[in-house]
Simulated scan of single mutants.
Amino acid sequence: MITLTVNARAYEAVVDPDTPLLFVLRDSLGLTGTKYGCGIGQCGACTVLLDGEATRSCQIPAESVGTQSITTIEAIAQDPMGAKVVAAWIGGEVPQCGYCQSGQVMAATGLLKQNPKPSDADIANAMTNLCRCGTYNAIADAVRRAAA
């Protein structure tokens, strides 16, 4: 059994220690806003915040999280920076199909928590999540709006 702090709440889950955090969140805790994309840490659909830093949850064993605080898309609007990002996403009508957007919002929030005034290069370097709909320009614009 492992204990995780997710969205400011303690959860216990009976899982193999090396189970990826993504599957604990989705399958054991029912927090399905974090998406499975590629399973190899490349697409970013599974991005969550670990102590405020954007992390690909498919690549981190749940037991290695320890006492770090996990924030998922379900609670991101409760974070002041996350609320700004969500408002910018809605205001800019960013999503098309929407599948990658929870990971995109989490990556943008993580970026802005680390760097509240990112340059265009900072945004390009941080926003590496894949979007099959190609909304990259709208995503970058939304990050700029959230930072303003």
Rank of each mutant, 00 (worst) to 15 (best):
T3A: 13
N7F: 03
A8V: 06
A8P: 00
A8R: 15
A8F: 07
R9T: 13
A10I: 08
Y11L: 07
V15F: 07
D16E: 15
D16F: 11
P17Q: 15
D18T: 15
P20D: 07
F23W: 15
L25Q: 00
L29A: 03
L29I: 04
L29V: 02
L29F: 04
L31R: 00
L31F: 02
T32Q: 08
T32F: 03
G33A: 09
T34Y: 03
T34I: 05
K35A: 04
K35D: 04
G37M: 09
G37K: 11
G37S: 14
C38A: 13
I40L: 11
G41I: 12
G41Q: 11
G41M: 10
Q42L: 14
C43R: 05
G44I: 05
C46R: 02
V48A: 08
L50H: 03
G52F: 00
E53N: 09
A54R: 01
A54H: 05
T55F: 04
R56H: 14
R56C: 08
Q59E: 14
I60P: 02
P61Y: 13
V65E: 06
G66F: 09
S69Y: 02
I70A: 02
I70W: 00
I70N: 00
T71A: 14
T72S: 07
E74W: 03
A75W: 02
A75I: 04
I76G: 00
D79G: 05
P80V: 09
P80C: 12
A83T: 10
V85P: 00
A87C: 04
A87W: 02
A88K: 02
W89F: 15
I90C: 09
G91K: 12
E93C: 09
E93F: 08
V94D: 04
P95C: 14
P95H: 13
P95Y: 12
Q96I: 13
Q96N: 12
C97M: 15
G98S: 12
G98I: 12
G98V: 12
G98M: 12
Y99P: 01
C100V: 06
C100L: 09
Q101N: 15
S102D: 08
G103Q: 08
G103C: 11
G103W: 02
Q104W: 07
V105Y: 01
V105R: 00
V105T: 13
M106S: 06
M106W: 03
A107R: 06
G110N: 10
L111I: 10
L112H: 08
N115W: 05
D120M: 09
A121Q: 14
I123M: 08
A124S: 13
N125A: 14
N125E: 14
T128K: 12
L130V: 14
C131Y: 02
C131M: 05
C133G: 06
T135W: 00
I139L: 07
I139Q: 02
A142Q: 04
A142S: 15
V143W: 02
R144M: 11
R144P: 05
R145N: 11
A146L: 06
A146D: 02
